[in-house]
Design a protein around this nucleic acid. Sequence first.
DNA 1: CCTCCACAGGAAGCGCAGGAGT
DNA 2: ACTCCTGCGCTTCCTGTGGAGG
Length: 403
Amino acid sequence: MSKRTIFRNPSVLSPHYVPKDLPFRDHQINQIVSVLSPALRSQKPRNIILYGKTGTGKTCCMKRIMEDFENSTKGSGDTKALIQYVNCRIYNSRYRILQKILKNYCPEADKSGFGLPFFYEKLLELVSDGKQMIIVLDEIDMIKDLDELVYTLTRSNDELSYGGVSIVGISNKLSFKDTLDPRSKSSLYETEMVFPPYTAEQIQRILSERSKEGFAPESVDSSAINLAAAITSQETGDARYALKLINKAGEIADFEKRNKITDRDVESARKRVEIDLTKETIVTLPEMHQLTLYSIASLAVKGSKYSRLSLENNSEQNGYSAPCYLFSGEAYEEYERVCNKVGKRARSLRWYKEYLSELEVLGLIATKPSGKGIRGQTTLIQIGQNAKDIQTVLDSVLFLKVN
DNA sequence: CCTCCACAGGAAGCGCAGGAGT
DNA sequence: ACTCCTGCGCTTCCTGTGGAGG
């Protein structure tokens, strides 16, 4: 009666799953805990920044620590320390972050119309009786007015005699440090910690442990795990990617009604995962960002006249496609056409540039200044992945049919 | 050398939604 | 009901800039 499946507990294989033990991250966890533990004794912990590429376990470690933290304060009745997690990709301004934190404690804050001073007062009230508040800012580099936020939060410490507020920042961009104001930089970087990428052997261990829990016994070839680990470490060392890979391989084997995951499944999963990953980011994009990306993708498929022009000067290299660059000017024109087609009002050129830089932050496109050989100063845009794939994804999202 | 191109990106301000105070 | 305030997304305006062209 029940459908035959090789999955035993699929949630274990999800990238959001937080395991009891995080292999190869004991050192980092211990260090973070030792930085944060003063909060349990009503002392203000130092601020800390966690660095590392995607899928190196930063968020996972932090969630593990938060759970343990909450469990340890639960029994003791009056809690001395509060810990709050904020995903800054969604809550990307000072206002939204404070609102998000406070609405867990006072529900009336979950409305717009309040000014920042209101939130500030509420925050002070919350920690004024000697409590310590730890704010975990995941993807901290996405915050638009981070300097002001850091200033607001550190200033609150000056006004309090007992409680305090400290920040745990999580970022995967090393360069974002330089964009900060020197004052907020020095207060934010009291402690710094780097998460190195996992090695192939480590990923292999992680995969086999999760597979043991996630799949039925004996259903995963050890060579399939080795292959998935090898592919991952060759690409990025991103554990999340590795989990996706093995998960997808499982789905393929399941679909074909086999009871073992083999190398071949991992190979075919590889192509699907990449499309899936970009699809995930694309569908959650705001509409205007989607239209912007769509215009770039379709122009890249068509080929830009400027880039064709400039390619003629260069001698043909193996006949294979050199990276296709688009001029921001022609991309904007295409964007206007696309907006027209779907009956949306195109935003101004100025704002279009903001869209571009946000798409670049997400890694969907790459840009570079035009430099020598091109008249005027402009930006060259290159699409991150296969333009055709992105176009197909967006076609289904935007309900378009363009040829 | 100057001028023009094709933009980049900062500043100011606008309309809107949704509070609070009166 | 009204006025005032706030943040946000956005437009308009403006000045700056690196290289090509004459």
